[in-house]
Design a protein around this nucleic acid. Structure first.
Lengths: 340, 340
DNA sequence: TACGGTGCTGTAAAGATTTACAGGAGGTTA
DNA sequence: TAACCTCCTGTAAATCTTTACAGCACCGTA
């Protein structure tokens, strides 16, 4: 029932080729003709069928976006910024969430973006060799957020350096028994950050002359509950830590809860620092390392769009992070004693 | 370069029609033939071009999902559950976020889902008549989450009743000066809940013999910061409230921060109850009314998928809510006095 | 033996665009 | 005035499926 290009052509008194050219703003159309076509299209409420256009042109004006979770702050934030860039460029966003039990395996074996997107944006996944190989078979520009891969576009932060800044902050407060609540580097839904943030943590300790203690590194699985359980483990150690670096704010929240429930004071008894600057970190008075979340998504999406116009070499951008000090990290009592 | 249906047909020694039928599992294909086709397809790593299929069949196997925000807990939760249902049904999810300044207007005037989805799922928008009219022009099944519209599928909760439960809980604790932190019913990004939850609040008060006081109703805009500002307004009243009902947990968080910063005790001095049972509500020890968020999305998505197989009459489902009492709502001091 | 079914398969049209290429009109230049 | 451009427009092929319809082979039945 909807008008087709032929109806518009008839009404405007031109051929369908001219209609196509006019509507897409291509050159080589006389202004008067173009106006006539535009008027006709408007009158018929005509919009080109994207499927026919995609079939004929081979381009889909669609970006596939792959996230490990959609209902966690970081990914939702990224998704929002990516969507914003795409909708402004008149691109469609095809969403794939891998959160389901076999979601990740299903995605990489079926590749449901095949033949339907112009490029793929993958968020925060530490890709296996097989997964990289699968993506290569798409023969499309691929962007990854949070990690670098040869031949792919990437936007990320320096996780090692950022983690060092966090731990150095704790050290500067006089803390010495600094624990780590991290992600599982062997988790099936491997994220990118755990490995690097753990490395930064250890580097900072070693430079301060402190031998990293494996018992002080526990898993929080990037969830609030996981962070709480991890903290309980730490509190059960013969010598409890005087500071904790959590690789995400959400895990830090859990840790704070555990500390509070033990009747200990956050900051004074155990300093806590997170990572991300989550929307509610200010509310929770949590010190953290801020990373530009939305910006990473927007920049990467834009890079991919640009690569579709002119063939651009894959780029790798590293954005800045920033230490944000709040009430959860205060100097240790001994430092007070020294300065008093 | 990728194999086409013709290549498969040639390799299997059949016509393209038979290939199409075999691959889609249609009847009227001999088992031996089907096996031969499947083997050929496998060998050539063939997947049908979705665009050609959509053009020919008129069906897109795609659902358009429209959210006012993607980076707020509620919507992210819904989006996740919808994606899960769709990916299992081999449907694509086209995401549209209206959070940008003119996002909503742009969406409803351009209707970027036109000619590319089989159905549309709209989350938590109080649609204007014009917007409803625009959706009708799509001539597709439309599902709305959080509100009922004639001719559309809907899944929601009873916001009025749920709000009453929240306020009745405060009343049962001996609270009498109960304030409301709500959304702006005149906000350009109108959500569905504010109107109904405000109504429930007033109903509960009136039934308890309390005259609703307009000065006790302030706007929190469904954000943490908005909730904090709203609470500050309430604290500046000549007679400050002894309880607050926030129409969302996030606004309640802001209110809690304001209360705490004033040196008042949450619960004892001012009881606070939210709405949603946000992922961190437990962490914040916030009483609230739980609603099944993911479930609403999943149910609605499934309803829409079902409607695409058999022509089903639009349905309207109302799911249950549940009062969750935590530390932010305790009996008032006067009640203690009475019982002591 | 003829006829009607049933089960399977192929032919070809239809779906709606993009785009390479051909070509006409008019202006400019030699 | 002829030749050549430039600018614009149309023709038709190409894109890759789905699906209505025709038709063949074979079986059972009358």
């Amino acid at each position: 029932m909807a008008a087709s290009i032929e109806d518009v052509a008839k009404l405007a008194g031109v051929s369908i080729a001219t209609v196509s050219r006019s509507l897409r703003g291509l050159p080589d159309v006389a202004t008067a003709t173009r106006d006539r076509v535009l008027a006709a299209a408007q009158e018929l409420d005509y919009v080109a069928s994207p499927f026919a256009a995609r079939l004929a042109s081979g381009r889909s004006s669609t970006l596939g976006v792959v996230v490990p979770f959609v209902n966690r702050w970081f990914f939702a934030e990224v998704l929002g910024s990516v969507e914003s860039v795409l909708s402004k460029a008149n691109y469609d966003l095809l969403l794939h969430n891998l959160a389901d039990s076999d979601g990740r395996a299903r995605f990489f074996s079926n590749l449901p973006v095949r033949k339907r997107v112009d490029a793929v944006l993958v968020v925060s996944l530490a890709l296996t060799d097989d997964e990289v190989a699968a993506l290569k078979t798409l023969d499309l520009p691929v962007g990854v957020l949070g990690v670098k891969h040869p031949g792919m576009f990437s936007v990320r932060i320096d996780d090692v350096a950022a983690a060092r800044v966090a731990v150095e902050h704790l050290l500067s407060l006089g803390r010495r028994r600094i624990a780590l609540i991290g992600g599982d580097t062997a988790d099936p839904m491997r994220f990118t950050p755990p490995h690097h943030r753990g490395t930064g943590y250890r580097q900072a300790l070693i430079e301060a002359g402190i031998e990293p203690d494996p018992a002080m590194e526990v898993l929080g699985y990037f969830t609030v509950d996981g962070g709480e359980k991890a903290m309980l483990e730490l509190l059960a150690l013969p010598q409890r830590p005087d500071a904790v670096f959590a690789e995400s704010d959400e895990m830090a929240y859990g840790a704070m809860r555990a500390i509070r429930r033990r009747g200990l004071r956050i900051g004074e008894d155990i300093a806590v620092i997170g990572f991300d600057d989550h929307a509610t970190a200010d509310l929770m008075d949590l010190s953290t390392v801020r990373q530009p979340v939305a910006e990473q998504g927007a920049v990467l999406a834009q890079e991919l769009l640009d690569s579709l116009s002119g063939a651009v070499e894959p780029s790798d951008l590293v954005l800045d992070t920033e230490l944000v000090v709040r009430g959860s990290t205060v100097p240790s009592a001994s430092v007070y004693a020294e300065t008093a």
